[in-house]
């Protein structure tokens, strides 16, 4: 068995040089929370590991020219307490706060969450609702900005070819009074509890209380999180201090009916999604900008046993 080579680029030039050397048997590692688990479980030894953790300057959150830019190496622990996101991307901060445990959040990165392309990746759902794009760099040093959805293969999994790395995700802040929220159910555990997550972004009228437009993303009922703006349209014209519009909760339930009819998880997820819809609306109403720690208590339970 050949030894795995290890490269830890410190700047973009070194990153590009490392990416140029990648083969199909090479891997990128950021936090390692998905990758190391996979390597250990499968016994696969890559020919080359590119460790991104020493790259300088890819863990930022900035609000520039109406866009919020988040470095791929930002960890969930950073994002959940980030002051820029608290006002300009509450849903993403909330999603980060709900990832795994403290130990996982200390290492799990934004780029890893996107590149791993799991159907239930929490940050992905928040990013999809925010209409985010990802900036990807290749082994020739070319960067491209692409919609997040383009990074997911149609049948599931990542569409990112070997030799490309995500360096940043970004989303427009818009001019309106914008609020965003994230909610999820279930926990990750070896007993594979059903999961469901959703994120909502609304723009308010000038009165600061009436929904002018809305976008919804739902995760874990398809190969990747997807937009369901037709369902979110039921919120247009609603006052955010009023009860959750029935059209919205029913629309969410219909989504589950359409996407996973007949699956064992269908009955559970159908009921669960109603609670999620109400949670999302509650967060928007209570102010999409309050600190993440003040959100309603999560509904998930600690997994039982090992």
């Amino acid at each position: 068995m050949a030894q795995t080579e290890w490269l830890a680029p410190r700047d973009p030039d070194e990153l590009v040089a490392a990416l140029r050397r990648m083969t199909g048997a090479s891997r990128i590692v950021a936090g390692g929370s998905d990758l190391m688990l996979g390597l250990h479980a499968s016994g696969f030894h890559p020919d080359l590991l590119i460790d991104l953790s020493r790259l300088d300057g890819f863990a930022h959150v900035r609000h520039v020219d109406g866009r919020v830019r988040v470095g791929a190496l930002s960890t969930c622990a950073q994002l959940q307490d980030d002051s820029v996101l608290a006002t300009h991307g509450h849903g993403l901060a909330q999603a980060a706060a709900r990832v795994g445990s403290a130990q996982i959040r200390n290492v799990a990165t934004l780029g890893g969450n996107v590149a791993n392309a799991s159907p239930c990746a929490d940050l992905v759902t928040a990013l999809v609702a925010l209409d985010a794009s990802a900036t990807v760099i290749d082994g020739l040093g070319r960067t491209r900005e692409r919609p997040i959805a383009d990074l997911f293969a149609p049948g599931g999994g990542s569409a990112l070819p070997p030799g490309e790395a995500i360096v940043e995700c970004s989303f427009a802040q818009g001019h309106a009074d914008r609020r965003s929220a994230f909610a999820k159910l279930g926990v990750r555990s070896s007993v594979a509890v059903s999961r469901l997550n959703a994120a909502l972004v609304v723009d308010l009228d000038r009165d600061g209380a009436t929904v002018r437009s809305a976008r919804l993303a739902v995760g874990s009922i398809a190969s990747a999180a997807f937009r369901a703006d037709a369902v979110a349209a039921a919120l247009i014209g609603a006052r955010i201090d009023a009860a959750c519009p029935e059209g919205f909760t029913h629309g969410c339930m219909r989504l589950v009916d359409e996407r996973i009819p007949g699956r064992p998880s269908w009955a559970y997820k159908r009921l669960a999604v109603r609670g999620l819809a109400e949670d999302l609306w509650g967060v928007i109403g209570a102010s999409g900008t309050r600190p993440v720690g003040k959100d309603p208590a999560p509904r998930s339970n600690r997994p039982q046993g090992w």
Binding site: G32, Q103, V107, S190
Partner: peptide, 27 residues
């Protein structure tokens, strides 16, 4: 569990709690 779920492997890396079963030693 060797899968990041039980926390029995928790150690501190520069003061942050991490799962040693998921962190590359090179880190």
């Amino acid at each position: 569990c060797a899968a990041g779920e039980c926390g029995a492997c928790t150690v501190l890396l520069d003061g942050l709690a991490v799962n040693a079963c998921l962190v590359p030693a090179t880190r």
